[in-house]
Each structure stands twice: as structure tokens, then as C-alpha cells.
């Protein structure tokens, strides 16, 4: 929208009504906001790269972390993220189509394309929430050592991962979760894991097939698997905690910084998608009410479109650096 009053003094640079770089005020400010936001995201991703290079041979392998697809059982690395990427690109396309229809002043088309864009965005945010929930809940469970390293369990013969629930020995008369109803002086206690370290150790000793997999990767990028003797020795000497799932402090998939960056970067991106959906909804109602029809100008749709494409653009990078590389 062009709110500047044109004074008639066209030659005067400072007289108003000028469009430097051929873009209106609002659009240029949207672009400058996008540039600064892009720098913020670059800062986060560069910090992620920094941490990853720092812990190069112990960084978790994304293919082994994000393997689930909703409503399907089994191991499908990457499939769901690829689908999410496609949904976001698709909603970017409907946004461009809305902008294009706006240029041609086709009111109904703008309404429909905006609607589809909002639906796509909502599906994406929902998928991200599901992805978080799966990540937090965890998969197999692991043991954390005194130094904060993660030891996972695999079948020595097949090399498949084994979940704690499959071998931990249930020992009665263990301590239970402390709650406020249990004691006079209640002190907070975080959720206890399903099994204690002792239960896992006993179960491990009883199952001759099991061995330990460490965080360290060999030259080919596979995690190192210890021999049965080494596994027993390492567990008995260093096991400190049972870890199920991931949060900001513990992470069963490996380096805890991986979880921290995952929550922070995808969270920040998800927040952008969420606010993008909200802004799209506002513009959507404005379009329905005919605000831009009266203004004879759909540039507002173009401006939110720029923001929406930017969100898509950032996801392309997050996808590469979190899931592919």
C-alpha cells in the first residue's frame, strides 16, 4: 500500500512519493526484516555446525533418530520429514498463486489460495509437534555414564537395537516416585525412568547376546560396538543413569547438545511457521471482508507471502543441516 502523499514535485528526491529500489515502503521493510531474520537463523545454524565439528566423531546420526511415521510401525528414516518439506513447499506454491491472483484482482481465487496456504501451514506445525513428541518420548532407552556419554544396547548377532523394556529385569522392592502425598516435607523430584540402573545391569548380565554400542563413529560413520567383555566392564564401571527419550539435560540418542539444538532451532522455526499462520489468517479475513478489493491493491498479500516463503526457505536449510548432512 502506498500511503505517501504525492506532492507533484516529482524531481525532488526528498519530496515523498519516491520508491527507492523500485519497491514500496512496506515491501522493502519486509525484505529488510527477512534479511535480519535470516542472519539470526544463520547464527543458530552456524552454532550448530560449530558444536558438530567440535564433537565430530560422537554426533548422533539423524537417520537413526528420526525414523517414525505417524500411524505406521517400523523403521522409515527421513520419509516423514521429506513429506513435511513437501507440504511446506506446496503451501508456498499456493501462496504464490494467491499473490498472482491478487495481481489480477481475482478476489475468489485469492480467498481459496490463502485458505489452502493456511491449511498447509497448520499441517506442518502439527507434524512438527508430533516430531517433538516422538523425540521426547524416545525409542529404545539407553544408559548414561558418569561422564555424560550414552551407551546403547544392540543384539550382538544381528546388530539391531534392543529396547530396555526387552531385557531389563524387574526387581521388586525398588523405590517409587516421590510425590507430595507421600511425605511431609515434599521436595521436587523429576520423573523416574521406568527401570533403575541396577535392573538394566542385571538384565544385561542375564542376556548373553547383548552388547553395548558407544557414541563413537568409525571411519565409515558407523557407531562402534563393543565386545561382550568390554560391554560388561564399561557398564559395571561407568553406568550412572537410565535415560529414556530426550530433553534439554539428557538425550538417549547421543550428545545432549544435539537435543538442545534440535529443540532450539526447530522450535524457533516452528514459532515462525505458527506466527506466519496467524498473520495469514488475519490477511485471509481481510481478503474475505474485501479490504484489498476496496483498496484496489493486493500488495498486503504479497508482503505476507514474502514472509511465508522465507519460512519455507529457512526450512530448506534446517532440513539439510539437521536431517541430511
Amino acid at each position: 500500500m502506498d500511503t505517501t502523499v504525492i506532492t507533484g514535485e516529482e524531481e525532488n528526491v526528498w519530496g515523498g512519493g519516491n520508491k527507492p529500489l523500485g519497491a514500496s515502503y512496506g515491501k522493502m521493510m519486509m525484505w529488510f526484516f527477512i534479511v535480519s531474520d535470516a542472519l539470526t537463523f544463520s547464527g543458530f545454524l552456524a552454532a550448530y555446525g560449530f558444536t558438530r565439528f567440535k564433537f565430530l566423531e560422537t554426533w548422533p546420526i539423524a537417520d537413526e533418530v528420526f525414523t517414525h511415521v505417524p500411524f505406521f510401525h517400523g523403521n522409515y528414516p527421513m520419509i516423514y520429514v521429506a513429506l513435511m518439506t513437501f507440504i511446506l513447499i506446496m503451501s508456498s506454491v499456493t501462496m504464490v498463486l494467491a499473490v498472482d491472483a491478487g495481481h489480477k484482482m481475482q478476489h475468489n481465487k485469492v480467498v481459496w489460495y490463502m485458505f489452502l496456504t493456511i491449511i498447509g501451514g497448520a499441517i506442518f506445525v502439527g507434524s512438527q509437534a508430533w516430531e517433538w513428541a516422538t523425540f521426547i518420548k524416545g525409542d529404545y532407552g539407553a544408559i548414561e555414564t558418569k561422564g555424560g556419554r550414552i551407551l546403547q544396547f544392540v543384539d550382538g548377532k544381528t546388530g539391531d537395537r534392543v529396547a530396555l523394556a526387552d531385557f531389563a529385569k524387574i526387581i521388586e522392592d525398588e523405590r517409587s516416585q516421590h510425590t507430595s502425598s507421600e511425605g511431609v516435607w515434599f521436595e521436587n523430584e523429576g520423573t523416574l525412568p521406568t527401570y533403575t540402573v541396577n535392573e538394566v545391569l542385571q538384565g544385561f548380565q542375564a542376556n548373553q547376546n547383548l552388547v553395548v554400542r558407544t557414541e563413537f563413529k568409525d571411519e565409515n560413520g558407523h557407531k562402534t560396538i563393543l565386545s561382550r567383555e568390554d560391554s560388561l566392564m564399561k557398564l559395571n564401571k561407568e553406568a550412572a543413569l537410565v535415560v529414556e527419550g530426550a530433553n534439554l539435560i539428557h538425550n538417549e540418542y547421543g550428545s545432549r547438545l544435539f537435543a538442545d539444538f534440535f529443540f532450539f532451532i526447530t522450535g524457533f522455526h516452528g514459532f515462525h511457521v505458527f506466527s506466519g499462520v496467524i498473520i495469514n489468517i488475519i490477511i485471509f479475513f481481510n481478503v474475505i471482508l474485501g479490504t484489498y478489493e476496496k483498496r484496489k491493491n493486493y500488495e498486503m498479500v504479497e508482503k505476507v507471502g514474502l514472509y511465508w516463503h522465507f519460512v519455507d526457505l529457512v526450512w530448506v536449510f534446517v532440513f539439510t543441516f539437521f536431517y541430511l548432512v
Partner: peptide, 18 residues
Amino acid sequence: AYYIAWDFMHLRDEKSSL
């Protein structure tokens, strides 16, 4: 990223200075 910026954000149609 190039094609998203150039065609979806229509940088292709903007002035080269911008």
C-alpha cells in the same frame, strides 16, 4: 534456496539493486 527466492519471492522481477 535460489529458486524459492527468485521465483516464489519474485526477486527475479525486482530491480537488480534491490
